[in-house]
């Protein structure tokens, strides 16, 4: 099964090379490696996310999933390898430049501006509608393009009527929704979501799954997630990581059936939670 999956990737790669540039995957990761001293957290990872595709990365704790997201978004500098985004190698670019290229990320640990209101939080990210914020005199709220983004993002995640609540006063689940609104308000071209459902109750998770099913129609998505039900309902393709390496990668059904994956991860996966 493993070899089949690999062949499948190779076929995909060949296919994309043979076809015109339009079919070039949105993101292509080649040999991505990150070492911290002697520890190699991510080892020679290859990954492809095509347009219109939701790609999930799963694996036990410590598999290097979050490190991978941090590498893809410029929060960490890779030790080796390439990250081709829209045909351009973005490996090693600082996070603010990666974000400006259109890779929007959410964080595993809720990372909102707690003292600010929901509206202010989303405003700050929606303000990237302006090429820069070195604008000193005109009041921010008069920038219509930003306002539209903020309203749209809040609408999408369903936080419109919470706009004036301080983020700190919201429930964990709502903060996760806010986190997503903050990403969406940047109008990304690609979503890198690091466990968007972490710590959510079943009802809240369901809402987010619905939202992600909606989002994947518009955005290519790279999703790191522990919740298997969510992964299987959202993802088209799947990469299983163990100890920083790719164990298996391919269409969800295929990877699911893989003996290697079942042995290493899915089969006794419960112990990893």
């Amino acid at each position: 099964m493993k070899t089949v999956a690999k062949a499948d990737i190779r076929r995909m790669q060949h296919a994309s090379k043979a076809t015109p540039p339009a079919a070039e995957p949105v993101m292509r990761v080649e040999g991505l490696t990150k070492s911290f001293g002697g520890l190699t957290a991510v080892a020679r990872v290859d990954l492809i996310v095509n347009a219109g595709e939701a790609h999930a990365v799963i694996g036990p704790n410590g598999a290097g999933k979050s490190t991978l997201v941090n590498l893809l978004t410029g929060h960490l500098k890779p030790s080796a390898g390439r990250i081709l985004f829209g045909g351009r190698d973005i490996a090693g670019l600082p996070a603010h430049k990666v974000a400006r290229l259109g890779i929007g990320r959410s964080y595993q640990k809720t990372n909102v501006f707690a003292p600010l209101t929901v509206w202010e939080n989303v405003w700050l990210t929606g303000q990237t509608a302006l090429p820069h914020a070195m604008r000193f005199l005109r009041p921010a709220h008069t920038h219509k393009a930003v306002r539209e983004r903020v309203e749209e993002a809040l609408e999408l995640v369903g936080l419109t009527d919470r706009a004036h609540t301080p983020a700190a006063a919201m429930s964990h689940g709502e903060q996760r929704q806010l986190e997503l609104a903050m990403v969406l308000a940047t109008k990304p071209r690609f979503l890198a979501l690091d466990e968007p459902m972490a710590g959510m109750g079943p009802e809240e998770s369901e809402k987010v799954v619905d939202l992600l099913l909606e989002l994947r129609k518009t955005y290519p998505v790279l999703l790191v997630e522990h919740d298997m039900d969510a992964v299987f309902s959202i993802a088209h393709t799947l990469t299983v990581m163990v100890n920083g390496r790719v164990l298996e990668s391919g269409p969800v059904e295929q990877v699911r059936e893989s003996k290697a994956v079942q042995d290493a991860y899915l089969g006794d996966g419960d112990e990893d939670y």
Partner: peptide, 18 residues
Amino acid sequence: KVLRGIGINPQRVRGVGY
């Protein structure tokens, strides 16, 4: 707006694109 965000969480502000 950006400066206040930086005062609260500079890494998050960088992650957005500033």
